[in-house]
């Protein structure tokens, strides 16, 4: 809010001065509105500048492995196996159970460490804080609050599996029933 009172107080004195001046070129009111406009413009410019500097810190291009990649043909994946070939590069496991194929992110839902697939114990085990997940991705031990996340899986035109990590499906939200979260072959 503009402090009207203080403006009015000044106004009186100014008007008196104005009277003695024979040629008033800029009126007091006009001058003040310019000052006001100036301050508004300055504040807006400063805010825009800070916002742009903030935006500057969010990169547009990431030098990370692409989020969407082709993972070979479904026949390359054996039944009942967790395939770890994409883990190092793309942080995804591909699991096949019968004719069901799904892709799990290899990021622990506790604090983001990378779990390992222990084939003898049939579980994903996070070394950081001991969370354990079944082959389905459901958590059953340790501090992890929820199951591993699935990512979007589909068949590309050439018949290869297409993994799209931009879309994530969470079991506890009931998203695993979404047809894009698994593949039936």
């Amino acid at each position: 809010m503009w402090n009207v009172g203080s403006f009015l107080r000044v106004e009186k004195g100014f008007q008196m001065a104005e009277k003695s001046d024979s040629k008033p070129e800029i009126t007091r009111r006009g001058f003040l509105s310019w000052v006001r406009a100036g301050w508004i413009a300055f504040t807006a410019a400063a805010a825009t500048g800070s916002l742009s500097a903030f935006r500057f810190m969010f990169p547009n291009v990431l030098f990370e492995p692409p989020q969407i990649f082709k993972a070979g043909f479904p026949s390359e994946y054996a039944d009942g196996m967790v395939d770890t070939r994409w883990k190092e590069k793309f942080r995804v496991w591909i699991v096949r159970e019968g004719n069901l194929i799904y892709a799990l992110r290899s990021v622990c839902t506790h604090l983001g460490c990378t779990p390992n697939w222990l084939s003898t114990e049939e579980k994903f085990k996070c070394p950081c804080h001991g969370s354990g997940f079944y082959i389905s991705g459901i958590n059953f031990e340790g501090p992890a609050p929820r199951p591993l996340e699935r990512v979007r899986i589909s068949l590309a035109e050439d018949g290869q599996i297409l993994i799209d990590q931009t879309q994530i499906f969470q079991q506890e939200k009931g998203q695993w029933s979404n047809p894009e979260s698994f593949l039936i072959i």
């Binding site: 969010f58 990431l62 942080r91 994530i168």
Partner: peptide, 19 residues
């Protein structure tokens, strides 16, 4: 989402990496 949240701001990426 993971591509513009507070952690992304901190790390300049979705994971701890070169950026």
């Amino acid at each position: 989402h993971a591509g513009n949240d507070a952690r992304f701001f901190l790390l300049a990426g979705r994971f701890v990496g070169a950026a």
